[in-house]
């Protein structure tokens, strides 16, 4: 098990560096000028100075190494300093990745917007799992019953219909016609008491449901398939023949074995919902990381795009690693050493 984990780590770290290089290189190819949006009256020498100050004058590999250093060393140090209220080294002099548009450090922007995304995305994933598991289990147990047929159909619809369509439809139905929920997310809302909490919940319901339905659709099919695989195995028949209660057979034997691949799929799906959040935040105008990415791309704010994309990549690799290790822990057959 240790060897297995070590080998997985050994692949994850170089992959991370290669991806960081790809992201950095790709964006560096951009024929982009951060001073392009500034007024035309600014003389070229001043523009040149501005460009220098943003670090554009140096050759590619120096900028890449600097960015790596900023991302992996400077920013975490800053984070530690702020979290624990201490000073490490010469923090005032430390160069930080700054957004071209707002001039503020990229990390600050990300930290500011992270909670919204995490709330919406996290809630939707949890709700999705809570819906998918029972639906999948019952569908598999009562295969071909009306519950199964309807469930399968709803799942198929759920992951065929794109999230941007469901979001828009839900807005049309629940906000425009019924007026139950607000269609635009109030980003300045603060949760101070029970009332404001309830308002927060009301404005979160639509985006959460959109993502939750999509996740639940995919996951429930997978749970159903995994349960079906196990329900037809001989060991289930043996357990029943031994006289065990049906509930025990189902919940203790079959479920445990079926959930192993499901757990890894859940872990692997985390990066996907972050990607899905990009679209949902556009529709509902939630001020999360997804919206930040779109704004950055449209505004050609390269450092912000680089950092955000790289964070996504780190998330994917981390989740893959966790999924692999979880699978190794849960399924003893996988640990071939």
């Amino acid at each position: 098990m240790f060897h297995y984990t070590l080998r997985r780590l050994m692949f994850a770290v170089p992959t991370l560096f290669v991806i960081s290089f790809i992201i950095f290189a790709l964006l560096d190819l951009a024929p982009n000028d951060p001073t392009g949006n500034l007024p035309l009256t600014i003389p070229p020498e001043v523009r040149e100075q501005i460009r220098m100050s943003l670090g554009l004058g140096e050759p590619f590999h120096i900028r890449y190494l600097k960015w790596l250093q900023q991302f992996f060393i400077a920013e975490p140090l800053n984070f530690i300093e702020q979290a624990f209220g201490i000073e490490i080294g010469n923090s005032a002099e430390r160069v930080r990745i700054r957004s071209w548009a707002t001039r503020s450090p990229v990390v600050d922007l990300i930290v500011e917007r992270m909670p919204q995304t995490l709330w919406v995305v996290g809630m939707s994933y949890v709700v999705g799992i809570l819906i998918a598991l029972p639906v999948g289990i019952i569908s598999a147990y009562r295969q071909y019953s009306w519950f199964d047929q309807i469930g399968t159909f709803v799942s198929m619809v759920g992951f065929s219909v794109p999230t941007f369509f469901t979001g828009v439809v839900l807005i049309v139905v629940f906000s425009v016609y019924l007026g139950w929920f607000p269609s635009i997310y109030d980003t300045t809302h603060r949760v101070t008491g029970w009332d404001s909490f309830w308002v927060q919940v009301r404005q979160m319901i639509l985006p959460v449901m959109v993502l939750a339905l999509y996740n639940a659709a995919q996951l429930s099919r997978f749970v159903r398939a995994s349960m079906l695989d196990n329900l037809n195995q001989d060991y289930v028949r043996t357990a029943r023949a031994k006289g065990m209660k049906e509930r025990v057979v189902l919940l203790v034997h079959v479920l445990r074995n079926s959930l192993i691949p499901v757990v890894t799929v859940i872990a692997l799906g985390i990066p996907t919902i972050f990607s899905g959040a990009i679209i949902t935040e556009q529709i509902f105008r939630v001020n999360g990381l997804g919206q930040l990415l779109i704004i950055a791309i449209q505004g050609a704010d390269i450092p912000l795009v680089q950092t955000l994309t790289f964070i996504f990549a780190v998330l994917i690799i981390l989740c893959n690693l966790i999924a692999d290790i979880l699978y190794g822990i849960l399924d003893p057959r996988i640990r071939y050493d």
Binding site: I19, A30, S275, V305, L308, I316
Partner: peptide
């Protein structure tokens, strides 16, 4: 297979957006 894993680790939607923009 390492190449496949690499591509799988790329955050697709952000990168797609970036490539198209570029």
């Amino acid at each position: 297979m390492r190449l496949t894993d690499l591509f799988l680790a790329l955050p697709l939607l952000p990168l797609l957006l970036v490539i198209i923009m570029l």
